[in-house]
Structure formats: C-alpha cells, structure tokens
Amino acid sequence: ITKKNNGSLINVDSVSIMGKAGILEGGKGDLMIPSAHIFEGTADNYPFKNELCAKDFEGYGLKVFEGTMVTVLGTSLQNKDILKFFHKSTWNVIGLEMEGVHYQKAIQSASKIRKSIGENVKVRYAYYASDNPLETGSTLASGGLGTTGVKPTYLITDKILKQIFNS
C-alpha cells in the first residue's frame, strides 16, 4: 500500500495457521494453543490474542496446552537445558516450532505499522505435537507420526473453519 492509492486496505479479516511442533509437556498428537511467539536467541517476542483457546478443543480425547511458543532456528540445534528453562520459567513455553514468530511479525507489521490490512485482524494459531524433545525416544529422530497427526489435524481444521464461517 502506498500513499498513491489513498491507503486503502487489503481485505483481510483473519489469518489462521495450523502446524506441527515439538511439545514440552505431553506427547505426540497433543495440541498447543499459543498466546505469544518468542524468537530464540533474540529479544523479539510477539504476544497476541488468539481466537482459538484450549476450551475449543476439550472433550476430544487430546491434551491441550496454552502458552508461549518459541521459534527456533533448527531442531538439530536444541539444548534440553535451555528448553527446560523456557518451559519452567515465567516464559511459560509450551512448545517449539520454526516459523510462528515470522508469521506474527509479518501480521503485526502489516496491521500495526504499514496499515495495509485492518488493525483488528483476527489471528488463529494451533499446533499439534510431532514430538517431545525433552523425552528420550520421543524426538523427531525416533520415527514418524504415523496416523497420530490425523485426529488433531482434522480437529484444528474443523475449529478454524467453524470460526471463520460463524463470524
């Protein structure tokens, strides 16, 4: 958006993101609903209001955790002591993934700084656990998800679509 086009907004009401991530409490297939993304190794942190919440996913036989997600540079670089610190500290980190902070940075830049989309854009983030890097034998290297990811993927998709169509 430039001043030449009178600053008209791109019509974006919401951004919904589903992904798989490492969980720090729980196991494969469990759900994580973030309230913030922090970028490992930097002072960058992005709190936001997530339109999804743990209550949306209760009663489906999956554990659900709400809190902060840490965006990491790569899973091979992870250190269990640092992950334990993030999880047990006031950061309340529930999981780690590799792109959330970049998405949220772009959303906040577009809505709050560049003003190319509405300032009140709704965001929805939900992740399902692909592994638990704090548990021996439950890392990404220990094998695939098999069908474990099917139920959380469909559940997250269902909740996102219902919110979009009901708004």
Rank of each mutant, 00 (worst) to 15 (best):
N50Q: 08
N79F: 04
F57M: 02
S167I: 05
E97H: 11
G149F: 05
Y125N: 00
I82W: 05
F85E: 05
K112V: 02
G100P: 02
T2R: 13
T42S: 15
A54Y: 12
S35D: 11
T148G: 04
E99M: 05
K151A: 09
Y154M: 07
Q104M: 15
N45C: 15
L134A: 04
R124F: 14
E58N: 07
G67M: 05
L140R: 11
I94T: 09
V150M: 10
G144R: 06
L52M: 06
D30L: 04
N79P: 01
E119H: 10
I10R: 07
F85D: 04
G149I: 02
S76Y: 15
K20E: 14
L145A: 04
Y128Q: 05
S111I: 10
K3E: 13
G26Y: 00
D30A: 01
K20I: 07
S111R: 08
H37S: 10
G61Y: 11
G41W: 11
K4I: 13
V123E: 14
G137H: 05
A36M: 14
L31F: 04
M18L: 12
G22S: 05
D13I: 03
H87D: 00
L77F: 15
G26T: 02
F85M: 06
S109Q: 13
I1E: 09
T2D: 13
G19E: 00
T90I: 07
K28Q: 07
C53Q: 10
Y46Q: 04
K55H: 12
F86G: 02
M32K: 04
G95F: 03
M32R: 00
G27T: 12
L134R: 02
I82K: 15
H87M: 08
I94W: 00
I82Q: 11
Y128L: 11
T71G: 01
G95P: 04
S167E: 13
T139M: 12
P34L: 05
N5T: 11
P152E: 00
T71Q: 09
A141M: 09
H37E: 08
A21R: 03
S138K: 14
D81R: 11
G59F: 07
G67E: 02
Q108W: 03
A106H: 12
A21D: 04
L24W: 03
G143D: 05
S89M: 09
G143V: 03
T68K: 07
G61I: 06
H87S: 15
S130N: 11
I1K: 08
K88H: 14
S89H: 04
G59I: 05
W91C: 12
I33R: 04
T157W: 07
K151M: 09
H102I: 10
N45A: 13
K20S: 08
I160Q: 01
N92L: 06
K162R: 14
T148K: 15
G143S: 01
I113V: 15
E58K: 13
K122P: 01
I107D: 02
L96Y: 04
S167K: 13
G74W: 05
D81A: 09
A36T: 03
Y154V: 08
Y60P: 00
N5K: 12
K20L: 14
A21W: 01
N11V: 05
L161H: 10
A110W: 15
I82G: 01
T148M: 13
L73Q: 14
Q108C: 11
E25R: 14
G118W: 08
K49R: 15
T139E: 06
C53A: 13
E40G: 12
H102E: 08
E99S: 06
